[in-house]
């Protein structure tokens, strides 16, 4: 292969706006790799606007998120819309490798849609660090909606509610998903609740469990604070039953946000949390650098040997790291 000079971000973005999918794919790779090129791409996109619709699909492993997403793609194609999907699966913490197995479940429905798989690459919370920047890019390029499938989540905190306008929580009957979701605070984040696998026994019970928990939220005042009681939709992802209703519920949620100041508030919150994530990532890099010095290794050895407490070690390391020189110095 001859190493042809690859076009820069601005040129790629121009071509991508013209509908070139290879350019879209390439831009996502660059966003995902981070660094200066990713910042350059972010800088090329228009500042905040309230266009587009990012739908987050989250839920326990195997709940049917990918199958449902595939069916949603079919519905959206029927409606003449041009959706994109960002499907996130976990990276192995040990090797950094990943098996991205979501799109195989969308097989047969994804024709015409733009589907991209993304590994978490060390990020916690069910998403990859590059998700917000990528959804912004895709929305800017006219994909509507942009659907984000999180990794399978249960009792962990999820970040999807900060990355999506509409968060769909997928549960399934018989596994106590609703109870788990309630414990993890997932229920509070959901704008639409789905009981998938409604072809299985227990679907009605699962719906009742969800209703009960929402009733409790009504009594406790949570519902008033959230401003809205999430709709519950029963679906069978394997046949497509209930999927048009799910799409309608997501669209209705988007419309209700746009009717007030909800959309603006959501996106403000999203940017705030994105800043927090970026800060955390930068601090972690600083810490990694500090640990990877002779002094850092000495302190680590002392802690491992039990001759220094983690708290003392932390104080020593922090003292060694700061104060940082002012910017530009």
């Amino acid at each position: 292969m001859s190493p042809s000079p690859s076009p820069g971000p601005a040129a790629l973005l121009r071509v991508a706006r013209g509908g070139d999918r290879r350019a879209v794919a390439r831009l996502i790779t660059l966003v995902e790799r981070g660094g200066d090129t990713a910042l350059e791409i972010a800088g090329l996109l228009p500042a905040a606007d309230d266009a587009g619709h990012v739908i987050g699909i989250t839920g326990a492993p195997g709940a049917g998120k990918s199958s449902l997403t595939g069916r949603l793609l079919a519905c959206l194609a029927d409606a003449g819309r041009t959706p994109a999907v960002l499907a996130v699966d976990p990276s192995s913490p040990l090797t950094g490798g990943a098996i991205l197995g979501d799109r195989v479940r969308m097989d047969g429905f994804a024709a015409g849609a733009f589907v991209r798989s993304m590994a978490t690459r060390g990020q916690q919370g069910g998403l990859a660090f590059a998700v917000p920047a990528t959804t912004r890019l895709l929305a800017h390029l006219g994909f509507d909606p942009v659907i984000v499938e999180t990794t399978g989540v249960g009792q962990v905190e999820v970040d999807i509610a900060s990355a999506a306008d509409t968060t769909v929580l997928v549960t399934s009957p018989g596994w106590g998903d609703a109870v788990q979701a309630n414990k993890a605070g997932l229920l509070e984040l959901a704008d639409v609740l789905v009981v998938n696998k409604a072809d299985r026994p227990g679907a009605r019970d699962a719906r009742r469990d969800l209703e009960l928990m929402l009733d409790l939220g009504h009594i406790s005042g949570l519902e008033a604070r959230a401003g809205r009681r999430p709709e519950i939709v029963l679906t069978v992802a394997t046949t497509g039953d209930g999927v048009p209703e799910l799409l309608a519920a997501a669209d209705a949620h988007r419309a209700s946000l746009a009717a007030g100041d909800g959309l603006v508030a959501r996106r403000r919150r999203g940017r705030r949390l994105e800043l927090a994530a970026t800060l955390e990532r930068s601090l972690r890099a600083l810490v990694d650098t500090a640990m990877d010095t002779p002094a850092g290794r000495r302190v680590l050895a002392d802690v491992e040997a039990g001759t220094m407490s983690p708290a003392d070690a932390c104080a020593v390391l922090l003292a060694g790291m700061g104060p940082q020189p002012p910017r530009g110095a």
Partner: peptide, 16 residues
């Protein structure tokens, strides 16, 4: 093969 490549640190989009 997917597992081998993953364990070697690669990202595998599995289509089956």
């Amino acid at each position: 093969v997917a597992r081998i490549l993953r364990d070697a640190g690669m990202e595998v989009v599995y289509l089956g």
